[in-house]
Design a protein around this nucleic acid. Sequence first.
DNA 1: TATGATACAGTCTGGACTGTATGTAAATGT
DNA 2: ACATTTACATACAGTCCAGACTGTATCATA
Lengths: 223, 223
Amino acid sequence: MSAALPRRTQAERSDAMRQRLLAATLESLAEDGYAGSTLSSIVRRAGVSRGAQVHHYPNKQALMLDAADDLLRSSYRTLGAVLLSVADEDNRLEMLVQATWERLFATPLYRAYTELLVASQRDAVLAEALRGMLLRVSKVFEPAVEHYFMPAPGTRENLKALFLQFACLLGGLASQAHLLNDTAHVAAQLKLWTRQAKLVMHARKGVRTPPPRPVEWDRPAGI
Amino acid sequence: MSAALPRRTQAERSDAMRQRLLAATLESLAEDGYAGSTLSSIVRRAGVSRGAQVHHYPNKQALMLDAADDLLRSSYRTLGAVLLSVADEDNRLEMLVQATWERLFATPLYRAYTELLVASQRDAVLAEALRGMLLRVSKVFEPAVEHYFMPAPGTRENLKALFLQFACLLGGLASQAHLLNDTAHVAAQLKLWTRQAKLVMHARKGVRTPPPRPVEWDRPAGI
DNA sequence: TATGATACAGTCTGGACTGTATGTAAATGT
DNA sequence: ACATTTACATACAGTCCAGACTGTATCATA
């Protein structure tokens, strides 16, 4: 009976299908890795046919590029939520560090990102895409940092460089976390960086409003 | 004529063949990635036949495990050379940081390690092998750190944690270096960490002898 | 030097994957 | 209502890979 299929419009059908495919792709990247994410396994995971995928994405690279875009977009939104969540906190830096780790780096989505990142070492198109997306993310993240924090008086620390260090540290930590049999190492590392950062920066007093951010990134998908 | 083949012993033949296969495997890992390193491509790169590989390694995983062992062993030796090279330097920390980056992390060998690391997320055997090897490396590196450096007076910094941070930072940096179009970022990050580390530690005065290290790791190959 | 063991070479096959080609249903425009 | 476009489904073709298999050369030993 067509009660379960209440006559969707073409755009709705396409969007829903693309969504399912992208979600399945990111899941598959996190679980099975880049090479293990075959088109067959992805459509199986998404519960759709092979034809649906080939209709929306002519080849594997197109699907991966769109998945990367979706991933970065989603991460941006999470980052935004994290930044909002620390807006009125007192120990803002600790909260930011912890939340960034828990909600961004210690997630399946970051594992998917790792796969794309490693694959981008041999795929120039993917590399260029990731470069552009990261640039857009940082273009919004860095003002947010300046919005919330300032160099400690007497220091002239480059906050951008400090947070790039933070990102690299968390990335390296996440990549090797499964080899460190003691999970306390991670907590210790987060504490360590927080302590170091506090030496050269602190939260701006009285700032409780979220930083500005471009609205177009809040839309779930599509340009 | 057998002039070109001066009657090698069996062990010599085997060792030479394994060496060629391992070198080709690590090359292939760095260039073509884990999934791209097929047995066919590896033996082609090594210039040997398919039968040679299957004789020495019953399956792909065995080859990869031995390659990982060879990689870690080689990295250990490089690390040892780096530590020796900074033995009588005045600005020891800067030298150590720079040399570790240039000779360890900014090399094809580290790219091969990255591939193995990512693959180990889905290969429990490989993960366990890497874990054990890393443990052995750190068991030697950490005493060397204590040998060369000490916490700055007044601080009670954990040098082990600090160098784990260093390793994670360099790892993350190396993984994303190809996306940072400005190579100055890397140099800035190395400087930044050096500056931070100097706040809490410094080189031991008068120490010019290399740290102790187990001899068995100096042998080029084999257990 | 005869015999067995080891090292190496080349081929075959079943399976899996990507891209393509063709067929059907649903939605849209007129 | 009907033609056309869009969305999806299924079948197929060509390629590639890992492991198995068979054959040959080289070495060790007695």
